[in-house]
């Protein structure tokens, strides 16, 4: 599933004939290597600017300063992928290391301007024992952008990793998370939220591999699609031989609010160990008509009632974000888009 997309080599652009890309046909929208994006400037900032911390920024794929980071103690890092390009492509990769005992808040933003660009990113993150990483990813791109971002996260026993991705999609957008789960004492939360309209498409794909004893994973993704938008959720949890006592839960719940909107969900559990507690739930539905009427009866206009019910549906994911500051930024971002 980790077929690395290399923008310089069109033979690495998967089509839907590749099982892991069956809902996200990159080859259909991208046939050739796009011309390289120009160099652009970017000033420090981004959606998480008010939360402070250090900043690493990539502007059209070029590192503005450092392109790696080592977290120690209690730190906030704003990792910004800024795209400002039209019809061109860029890519970047970044490695983030965390010292034992460190507490890192990683605020990642994908800030797109321009039109029709192609972006490809790779993030490597290693989390040692006693360390805690909270990663919040906010993806805000133009409707005609194409982007793929892949994160490889390694946790060892006694590490804590929480991830929440929030996105409004793009022409074709995919975020992959590959997580090696350390097992004993390691707690992983892997959440996602998508709110798509127009012809937007997003694909949240994750593979969590439980390799050790008694690991815990909790995964919750919620989404709403309107118009002709398409949401894709592919979540796979693998419990390897010997990873006994694993407790893994995965939920994906979506609202389809457009007659021609679509959601494709593929939750998978592969279990090779004993005495595990694994469960997955997947629901796709519509807003409750009787609730909508009730709200309108009280004077709330239909559109506002829909927005309120949609927000109420999605907010569970936002509420799971541990820190107040990030939660508020995300809540405001979401409210503005419903």
């Amino acid at each position: 599933m980790s077929t690395a997309v290399d923008l310089r080599d069109p033979s690495t652009f998967p089509s839907r004939r590749v099982e892991a890309w069956k809902y996200t046909d990159l080859a259909r929208v991208l046939r050739e290597t796009p011309p390289p994006s120009p160099t652009v400037e970017t000033a420090p900032g981004g959606p998480f600017a008010a939360l402070g911390g250090e900043e690493i920024a990539f502007a059209n794929g070029r590192a503005v300063g450092a392109d790696a980071f080592v977290a120690s103690g209690e730190q906030t890092l704003r990792l910004r992928f800024v795209s400002d390009a039209t019809g061109t492509g860029h890519s970047a990769s970044v490695r983030i290391a965390v010292k034992p005992g460190a507490k890192l808040t990683l605020l990642e933003s994908h800030e797109g301007a321009g039109a029709g660009y192609v972006a490809s990113y790779r993030i490597d993150l290693d989390i040692p024992a006693g360390a805690e990483v909270t990663r919040v990813v906010l993806i805000d791109e133009p409707a005609d952008a194409i982007s793929v971002s892949v994160a490889h996260v390694k946790t060892v026993p006694g590490a804590v990793y929480r991830q929440t991705t929030i996105t409004s999609g793009a022409r074709l957008q995919r975020q992959e998370t590959h997580l090696a789960h350390g097992g004993e004492g390691t707690e992983v939360t892997l959440d996602g939220l998508y709110a798509l309209s127009g012809e937007r498409h997003t694909d949240l794909t994750s593979v969590v591999r439980h390799g050790g004893l008694n690991g815990v994973t909790s995964q919750l993704t919620k989404g709403v699609v309107r118009d002709t938008a398409r949401g894709v959720f592919q979540g796979k949890i693998v419990v390897e031989r010997g990873a006994d006592g694993t407790d893994a839960r995965m939920g994906h719940h979506a609202l389809i609010l457009g007659e021609r909107a679509e959601v494709d969900a593929k939750p998978e559990l592969e279990i090779y160990a004993d005495d595990v507690q694994c469960a997955h739930g997947n629901t796709v539905g519509n807003l409750d008509e009787s609730a909508l009427f009730y709200m309108q009866q009280r004077g709330i206009p239909a559109d506002e009632a829909r927005a309120l019910l949609t927000q109420a549906f999605l907010i569970e994911v936002v509420d799971r974000i541990a820190h107040d500051g990030e939660r508020e930024v995300v809540r405001e971002w979401l409210t503005a888009r419903l």
């Binding site: 609730a291 009730y294 709200m295 009280r298 709330i300 019910l309 109420a312 549906f313 907010i315």
Partner: peptide, 15 residues
Amino acid sequence: IEIPGVPALTFVRTA
């Protein structure tokens, strides 16, 4: 009707 996720206070003030 039950309205999950919308506190009663918020609901009535919105209305």
